[in-house]
Amino acid sequence: MTISLQRFEQLLDAYGASPQRWPAHERVAALQLLEQSPQAVQLMQHALWLDQQLDQLSAPDFLQLGSQILQQPLPARRKSLIEQLLAWLLPLQQHSAAVFWRPAALACVPLMLGLVLGNQLDFYSDAYADELYSDELEETELDLISLADYSEIL
């Protein structure tokens, strides 16, 4: 791969004179151009000046910042319902009996729910049968009345 002098200038304009800051895939080609082209060397020196200026800017050392951050109290983490359920279901203590009985208990929940619902909902209760029977009687009675009416007209 090779790069043009124009691209080399763009690299210097954007990233400065330190090859470490150049894009990795263009670095080797840019260094090769630098070895071959006196114009590239001149451009490099121009870019180096700004880097040297910028490097002079100092900053506080922030040596205590890490411990300051660690001293501040951390807020309680709010877990979602699913996370809470999973944490209860699969406790971290591997040797705890809860590892076995909790999933088993959870698996029994649908079964228990089915039994309770089955007992509560009686689809063939006497009241329902009576209701059905009274509806049938009513219909029969209506049919008879209507037949009687027709016979009178005829």
């Binding site: 506080p60 910042l65 890490g66 951050i69």
Partner: peptide, 17 residues
């Protein structure tokens, strides 16, 4: 705490600049 020790200074420098 390990993450804080590893990255806090870099973040401090960035924010200061």
């Amino acid at each position: 705490a390990d993450a804080v020790r590893q990255h806090s200074r870099a973040i401090g420098f960035y924010a200061f600049r």
